[in-house]
Computed example of a mutant assay.
Amino acid sequence: MRDIRLIQGDITTIPVDAVVNAANSSLLGGGGVDGAIHRVGGPSILEACRELRATTLPDGLPAGDAVATTAGRLPAKWVIHTVGPVWSAREDRSEVLASAYRRSLEVATELGAASVAFPAVSAGIYGWPHESAAEIALSTVDASPFSGAVTFVLFSDDMLRVFEATRDRLR
């Protein structure tokens, strides 16, 4: 497995080229990581998202896709907004979650980003089981052709331990 950094912390404080936002499809802010990125990054992020909605994404960003905006006041150059799926016990949406990571790294490559910080997409309010979320995240990033540095910034010690155990198991 490639070298993927795992830390517990606040993703809005990490100095990287691109911070990935676990956004909702409206791109207009929300709770959790999305709300924190919009609060700390400031109004220029929301303005850029509104422009996307008014032009190229009138129906919002589909789950599994990604798009970039300015990072505003964050210590990053860009925010890559991605929409993860809501977990379902009746429907396997694993490929949509993997696509959110893949598309984020494709956008990072297009931007020329050399470093990317991810949250645990879909593992918060969207209810994705943590072990499965970690496995999909780590295996998808590991398989990506993205050549830059990848850091997962996990909000809690518990989530950090899940990601560490998953990484160790996948090695």
Rank of each mutant, 00 (worst) to 15 (best):
M1R: 15
D3Y: 12
D3E: 15
I4Y: 05
R5N: 07
Q8K: 06
T12D: 06
I14S: 03
P15V: 11
P15Y: 13
D17C: 11
V19K: 02
V19C: 04
N21H: 06
N21E: 04
S25P: 03
L28D: 05
G29D: 15
G29L: 15
G30V: 15
G35Q: 09
A36L: 13
A36N: 15
V40T: 14
V40K: 15
G41Y: 12
G41K: 12
G42A: 13
I45M: 10
I45W: 11
E51W: 13
L52P: 05
L52N: 02
R53G: 02
A54N: 11
G60N: 00
G60A: 00
V67Q: 00
A68H: 03
T70C: 14
T70N: 10
A71N: 09
R73H: 13
R73Y: 12
L74T: 11
A76M: 08
P85M: 08
S88H: 04
S88K: 02
A89R: 08
E91C: 04
E91L: 11
R93F: 12
S94E: 04
E95K: 14
A98D: 03
R103N: 04
L105C: 02
A108E: 00
A108H: 02
T109I: 04
E110A: 08
E110V: 02
E110W: 03
G112C: 06
G112W: 10
A113H: 10
A113G: 08
S115C: 13
V116L: 10
A120I: 00
A120Y: 00
V121D: 02
V121E: 01
S122G: 10
G124I: 07
G127E: 03
W128G: 04
P129R: 06
E131M: 01
E131L: 06
V141N: 08
D142Q: 15
A143D: 13
A143Y: 05
S144Y: 02
F146T: 00
V150Y: 04
T151A: 09
S156M: 03
D158E: 08
D158T: 08
V162E: 01
V162Q: 00
E164A: 11
R167S: 13
R167N: 11
R169I: 11
R169Y: 09
L170K: 14
R171P: 12
